[in-house]
Amino acid sequence: MNSETLQRLLQAQRGREPVAMVTALHSGAQRIVCARQAADDEFGAVIVDGFRSDRSTVQSNAAGEHFVEIFNPKLRLIVIGAVHIAQSLVPMATAAGYQVSVIDPRAAFATAERFPGAEVVAEWPDEVLPGLGLDARCGFVALTHDPKIDDPALGLALQSDCFYIGALGSRKTQAARRERLVAAGFADAALARIAGPVGLDIGARGAPEIAISIMAEMTMCLRHGGAGHDIRRDDR
């Protein structure tokens, strides 16, 4: 790999731009293909599919084998609420490769010391989220169960392409939240995207186990897509 190719890959990662790198395995020759160039590339269909499935594959043509490698933007997790569960969830998500932002307007909770390795923002979510550019490589989880903090944040998440939207709270809390969001103008189809009660039903007790159930559910949505979400609901 030459320096120019490496710099292009790093630039794409920093700018959250999906790109593919095609490597001829016999010669080592490489090219970078961005989303808008994919249509003109001989492996274009594989690349477009790869962006969606986040899978890299070996392809063959007359010249030999080629590794079509997908470089999607790094996964991000937005956590609303610098609470106890968040303290368990953040290191797990970090270990799974997520870049984590914790947002909570309560400055006493939102301290860097409580969340090593995460970006901690002690501001109201509705002020911070628009600047974060939530996209399809973002998971989102609201953990304060304080409507003043969670509701506006959930509203913004629902308007984004986040692949996972979770909200902490009992069934009663979820029902009340649902009524408020319906009153705020959100349709049923949009509200169906909210995973709540949050996390897979693994009988979790205590913050670390709840964090495991959230990580499991978020991973399922990431890897199986929306279908995974429906399976979870059918089982309940």
Binding site: M1, N2, S3, A29
Partner: peptide, 13 residues
């Protein structure tokens, strides 16, 4: 299967 390549500051394919 593992692909092994040198990384160069400049040049190289």
């Amino acid at each position: 299967r593992i692909f092994v390549e040198a990384l160069d500051k400049a040049g190289q394919p």
